[in-house]
């Protein structure tokens, strides 16, 4: 029982904090501030997580710098070493938000790929209140771009589990490289989605054009299909 609880706590920790060590840094910082000469009335600084860590780092380095017992060279070396340890601890506390792995130069001021904006504009020009099925994750762009879109789903996988069978089927199929377009089309028809916006990276065995959709607009990696309505 205890092992399971600890396992669950660890899983939750990893889910929320990833591989980062901010919580550990915060706990260590609180301990450092507690044993240092910080006044009692200043302890509410723990309301600020990053502030606490910053103050602890400052307390450590200041303590080493202020030590008059060792020589100047020793003090400098200690400062360099402690600063290096602090920098390493901070750098390992999380991932670089501004790294090139996570960022690309914004194509426009909306921070949405320009070709996706073109595809969305094409759909909006065609219909005042389009209902759209799109790739998992793209829904948030549609939602943020215009309230006119009615989306089949835009949520994360956890939210999808609570929805109906058609939404789950479409979501699960579109996450594959070779989705079953019949299932996608069936789900789309069942939910009344007039437009389906897919990625050209998909390699379905049978294209969705066989199941009641026709190619409407294509730009770059974004392909828009429109439901064929009987005259």
């Amino acid at each position: 029982m205890i092992r399971e609880l600890l396992g669950e706590l660890y899983t939750s920790y990893r889910l929320f904090l990833g591989n980062g060590t901010v919580l550990t840094l915060f706990a260590v910082s609180v301990a450092v501030l507690a044993v240092s000469d910080i006044a009692l009335h200043k302890r509410p600084v723990i309301l600020s997580v990053l502030g606490t860590i910053g103050c602890a780092v400052a307390a450590v380095i200041d303590k080493i710098t202020g030590s008059k017992e060792s020589s100047a060279v020793q003090r400098i070396l200690c400062v360099i070493f402690s600063s290096a340890v602090c920098v390493l601890a901070i750098v390992s506390s999380g991932e670089n938000v501004l790294s090139s792995d996570m960022n690309a130069v914004a194509e426009n001021e909306l921070h949405i790929p320009s070709q996706l904006v073109e595809a969305m504009d094409a759909v909006l020009d065609d219909s005042d209140a389009p209902s759209v099925l799109t790739m998992p994750g793209w829904g948030l762009y549609f939602d943020a771009y215009s309230s006119a879109f009615t989306l089949m789903f835009d949520e994360s996988e956890e939210d999808i589990s609570g929805t109906n069978e058609y939404v789950r089927n479409a979501y699960n199929e579109l996450k594959k490289n070779h989705p079953d377009m019949k299932k996608v089309a069936d789900s789309s028809h069942a939910c009344g989605c007039e437009y389906v916006v897919l990625s050209s990276d998909l390699w379905p065995e049978v294209p969705i054009t066989r199941y009641g959709y026709e190619l409407f607009y294509e730009t770059g990696p974004y392909v828009v299909y429109k439901e064929v309505k009987a005259p």
């Binding site: 990893r14 889910l15 929320f16 904090l17 990833g18 980062g20 901010v22 990053l50 860590i53 910053g54 901070i90 750098v91 390992s92 506390s93 999380g94 991932e95 670089n96 938000v97 501004l98 996570m102």
Partner: peptide, 8 residues
């Protein structure tokens, strides 16, 4: 800490 701020 804010630059290396992406946890999960």
């Amino acid at each position: 800490l804010n630059i290396w701020g992406f946890l999960s």
